[in-house]
Design a protein around this nucleic acid. Structure first.
Lengths: 209, 209
DNA sequence: GGTGTTTCTGTTCGCCCGAACAGTCGACCC
DNA sequence: GGGTCGACTGTTCGGGCGAACAGAAACACC
């Protein structure tokens, strides 16, 4: 295999790793002179030829005559990525949620999440087995979009000062919430403002459930 | 509220949108002169002052005296993001998978996926109800890491030329696979090389299941 | 033994690009 | 009605930064 996709050298791998770590830390690519300093090169040309080599092997792309214009091809044309804050529990409306401390956040592209542009979104850690009938387990992460529910949506609702998942149903014009577990009481009438959002995506880490 | 977090102007929103679209397309930020040309400014200073305004409002960060050094704070310090190829079905071993066309890909940060560094990983669209007992439904997306299974892992296994999910169990030193649905036959002895990987994460889009 | 790749040194060139300075005009804000 | 913003024009300066050129020494391939 003389042309294309030859194997990457140890030294080139080092450089690649530096590019990645620099980008993660500063959000920008290093200039050839930054690379020079980091590796202790006496000449800036050394960095240049390494970049050229990596470009020839296809692991990076460069825009010529632009500053810091090194790009990883896999980052290009990727769907937009959103950070979703994760709450262990939510004991307030959406308005007050911003002040509440998130337990962390997850980053996923919008396409997988199936979100509309500009949707307000958060994630909730499921506690208990009340939705086991919908195959949602204790410990699952549920991504919720703050919007009006439609009948049969699974919603995050505020009940007794705590947020839980329930099925949103409408009977004879009156909305009510229902657990998907025969051991749980059925009909809970919806008073007002209790629905915080609609479940959009579910994420489960292996090992649980 | 005189200081900090004032509202973003329409014009500033336009600029922000341009920064994002430029970055998505080229993987690099535009220079002030790129901005100037795009908006038809007569002076490059117009772009500069817009960037300064956005920085003061905290929606971007800048590294002074560096070229194209505009950064979105939310992109900074984020866990590494990996692209996971999605296969509708896999009828081969891991080696041949690279040649097989992926049905798309999803981008998630490694932390949410719970992956080890350098792990070989792919995603599989679940077909059928054979794992409904483990609360895995038809249409779910399962992220699989190619590695040796441990007892009680859920694995992607090649059976009759098609990949399906099964529970990996060991009885009296002999490994076998089991569906998590009483309607399916239990014990399937493992011959060799059939396990393609271990389920690590599950992703479910709402509306299904 | 020539040809090619890798990993560098040393130097020069010249556009790229952020930054600073000096203004202009209009919209709000007490 | 002076003050502070936002949205610019017009110009100059100087370091940032990619790129080119001329090597060199090690190693592998065949």
């Amino acid at each position: 295999m003389p042309r294309a996709a030859r194997k990457i050298t140890d030294r080139q791998h080092e450089l690649l790793e530096y590019l990645r770590s620099y980008q993660r830390e500063y959000g920008v690519m290093p200039s050839t002179r930054d690379i020079q300093k980091h590796f202790g090169f006496a000449s800036q040309t050394a960095a240049m030829s390494h970049l050229r080599a990596l470009e020839k092997k296809g692991v990076i792309q460069r825009h010529s005559h632009k500053a810091r214009a090194v790009v990883f091809p896999e980052d290009l044309g990727r769907a937009e990525i959103v950070d979703v804050p994760v709450y262990g529990s939510i004991a307030a409306g959406y308005g007050e949620m911003q002040e509440q401390q998130a337990d962390g956040s997850i980053a996923v592209d919008v396409q997988t999440l199936g979100l509309r542009k500009g949707a307000r979104v958060f994630a909730l850690k499921v506690r208990g087995e009340s939705m086991i009938g919908a195959n949602i387990c204790d410990g699952d992460l549920v991504i919720v979009e703050a919007r009006e529910p439609r009948p049969r949506d699974i919603v995050a609702a505020l009940i007794d000062g705590e947020t839980t998942l329930k099925r949103y149903l409408v009977k004879e014009g009156r909305p009510y919430l229902q657990a998907e577990n025969p051991a749980f009481p059925d009909l809970i009438p919806v008073t007002e403002l209790q629905v915080q959002g609609v479940m959009q995506t579910l994420i489960r880490q292996a090992g649980r459930c």
